[in-house]
């Protein structure tokens, strides 16, 4: 699944420019203070429960939400490949022949067509994040890179971190850890905090649900914890997948053995991302389980606290 479309000119990641799919301003749980979270495209994992499916592949994608379409057919006029056509009086979007020119998105005033992942330069991103410098200053906040896996666009991500660092803006990186150690090491001088996702301590389970073994993730986390940089561990609690008492106990034991951990933030799995899969024509892989209830999350929190860890429950608690 990952990178199936990411070929040729559509993949851009250099020290000067990269592919960004969103900004979230006034982000308050992605590191200290008020932050701007910059979402970079591309991820080495393909988690079944992924709630940002547009983050998986590195190339651009087009969201299509037909309920917003007013049938003005401007997209049909500009499409260079007949991906946008009218068949039997119905407008049809055929992704198979789409060359991702983005021309249709440019003329879609209703917002039915939207581009996920536009190319931005380091300077453009910096201008966007610098706009909120006053908020970072008053709250002790800064910039968080997220994704996808932001360090997959390594040169671009590190150039952004360096630019923030130079500008005196606090930096955090939300990583899945499935990277070469040298990439994390290169980001380290410009990263003031890591938010490190831990999905499952069982490597086999990990592979079944994310596509990769967890060996490298675990190994990188151990090495990172020895560098002195503060690390917040993040665990998405998915009932029936990674939330058994044994699994939590194992995670707690492992985390307890690490240094420089600021705490464990529990995130609750939710099933609200289906519309994104639909709008991308991607197969919805979200596990058909109920989100964890508050009592269960509190119990998990208590269990981890009993193991000596600082725990942050999801923002609804």
């Amino acid at each position: 699944m990952p990178d199936s479309q990411s070929s040729g000119k559509t993949v851009i990641a250099s020290a000067r420019e990269g592919r960004v799919f969103d900004f979230k301003r006034f982000a308050v749980h992605d590191g200290p203070g008020i932050r701007t979270t910059v979402f970079l495209k591309g991820c080495p994992l393909s988690c079944a429960w992924c709630h940002n499916p547009e983050a998986i592949i590195r190339g651009p994608q087009i969201f299509f939400r037909p309920e917003r379409c007013i049938e003005c057919l401007a997209c049909v006029d500009v499409c260079p490949t007949s991906a946008q056509t009218v068949v039997d009086n119905k407008r049809v979007f055929t992704r198979g022949v789409c060359d991702l020119s983005g021309f249709c998105v440019d003329v879609c005033n209703s917002g039915a067509l939207e581009l996920a992942g536009r190319v931005m330069s380091v300077d453009e991103v910096m201008e966007a994040v610098r706009a909120d410098a006053g908020f970072y200053d008053e709250s002790g906040g800064g910039v968080t890179l997220s994704g996808g896996e932001p360090l997959l666009q390594a040169e671009f991500a590190i150039a952004l971190l360096r630019a923030c660092h130079t500008a005196g803006i606090h930096t955090a990186v939300d990583t899945c850890g499935q990277l070469q150690w040298s990439t994390l090491e290169a980001a380290l001088p410009f990263t003031e905090m890591f938010l490190y996702d831990l999905k499952d301590m069982s490597s086999e389970n990990h592979r079944a649900n994310t596509g990769v073994l967890n060996d490298r993730i675990i190994d990188n986390l151990k090495r990172l914890s020895g560098t002195g940089v503060p690390i917040e561990i993040r665990i998405v609690i998915i009932p029936g997948v990674n939330d058994s008492d044994d699994q939590i106990e194992g995670a707690g034991r492992f985390i307890g053995g690490l240094d420089n951990i600021t705490g464990v933030r529990l995130l609750a799995y939710h099933r609200m991302a289906g519309s994104k899969y639909d709008a991308l024509d991607m197969k919805n892989t979200l596990p058909d389980v109920e989100p964890p209830d508050e009592l269960r999350l509190m119990a998990i929190g208590k269990q981890l606290e009993a193991q000596g860890l600082t725990v942050h429950l999801p923002e609804r608690a």
Partner: peptide, 13 residues
């Protein structure tokens, strides 16, 4: 507003 998630309310089903 859910940690790590980027989406507008009106695009949800």
């Amino acid at each position: 507003r859910i940690t790590g998630w980027s989406v507008y309310f009106t695009t949800l089903t």
